[in-house]
Design a protein around this nucleic acid. Sequence first.
DNA 1: GCGACAG
DNA 2: ATCTTGTCGC
Length: 231
Amino acid sequence: MIDTAALRAEQIEKAKAVIKQDNQGFDEPKWIAGADVGFEQDGKITRAAIAVLSYPSLELVEYRVARVPTSLPYIPGLLSFREYPALMAAWSQLTTVPQLVLVDGQGIAHPRRLGVASHFGLLIDVPTIGVAKSRLCGKYDESGLQDGAAVPLVDKDEQIGWVWNSKARCKPLYVSVGHRVSQESALLWVERCMRGYRLPEPTRWADAIASRRPAFVRWLAAHPEKNVDEG
DNA sequence: GCGACAG
DNA sequence: ATCTTGTCGC
């Protein structure tokens, strides 16, 4: 059985270590990464992809894919325990260490303030930002989403992130502090990583790699020397 | 008690 | 998350 109560207690404990202020020296990052997790073989295998992009050019320079046996089922609120092992495996293989990582999922916009972006950030001790495609908790003013402005995501009278319509006619993004970034910087860096799509480039590439999308397959054909795919 | 619920 | 074609709207 899974001791969910113990995992929740661990989240409350770890959340105390999350730093919600800007990290010294990442104001001009040279590399920004995107991280995403997917599954194979009916969920038995967890697969993490990390894409490292140059900044500000936002070009893919390196990627890593790691596969590990799935250790936990999906339980809302406990996602990070299921995903961090594979993320760590991919992270440890990186040659280029980024100064900032955008993670697919919530940062502190979580019931106990420890989404996968925060948990992973604590483990690698590198600034991270949570960029989720849907909401876990919190409420916001939907009427304020119109003109492309970000609106506060609030839970228990506390702002835990932003809801931002990154692209017209698309569902909004839920941006929150992961670790070692301020709430203002979290939104700012996501905005700086946009190139016309709903998702910021780092996360978009990580997703393309994890799902082997056409854009990534084309990039691989153009950069055969960077092929590190293990299958 | 009831509904909500990242990926 | 993942399985998948066409289809609606800009």
